[in-house]
């Protein structure tokens, strides 16, 4: 490497990040130094080949926006669902206890509700246990 041109200066020159004065000074040094010329030629050739490379970006698979938007909209959907479900549940409990229906009707309705909850909980629990013991759970599909 020439004493007058540092590696960093050579990089800035190669990448067109120098002012006119610095460019002129580096060019003078390059002209008088075979070593610098060779080094510059190697980096320039690498740069050219890297720049002419183009990566295949998967063709026209549509914008990623739809996937992003689905994710961004999800929290709002959950909030609305939970709030709505809570309101209906509260109303259901109120109707259940204040309704003049027969006791057997209330018990049957309560059994259906509790049964659905028990089934749901058991499915969730089963799926969780399978997931815990799945040896392939960390393997990406």
């Amino acid at each position: 490497m020439s004493e007058r041109v540092t590696h960093e200066e050579l990089m800035r020159y190669l990448d067109n990040e120098v002012g006119p004065e610095e460019r002129s000074r580096i060019e003078t040094s390059v002209e008088t130094s075979t070593e610098l010329r060779r080094e510059l030629a190697v980096y320039r050739a690498m740069k050219d080949d890297l720049r002419t490379m183009q990566l295949h970006e998967g063709g026209d698979n549509g914008s990623i926006w739809y996937a992003v938007n689905r994710h961004l909209a999800r929290p709002l959907g959950w909030v609305l669902f939970v709030v709505g479900a809570l309101v209906w549940a509260a109303y259901g409990v109120y109707v259940y206890f204040t309704s003049p229906s027969f006791l057997w009707q209330k018990l049957a309705t309560g059994a259906v509700g509790v049964g659905i909850l028990v089934l749901l909980a058991s499915v969730i629990w089963e799926r969780y246990r399978v997931w815990l013991t799945d040896p392939y759970r960390d393997i990406q599909k």
């Binding site: 590696h7 960093e8 200066e9 050579l10 990089m11 800035r12 990448d15 990040e17 980096y43 690498m46």
Partner: peptide, 9 residues
């Protein structure tokens, strides 16, 4: 940046 680029190249 220039220094990092030099080392990378």
């Amino acid at each position: 940046v220039a220094s990092r680029l030099y080392h990378a190249r």
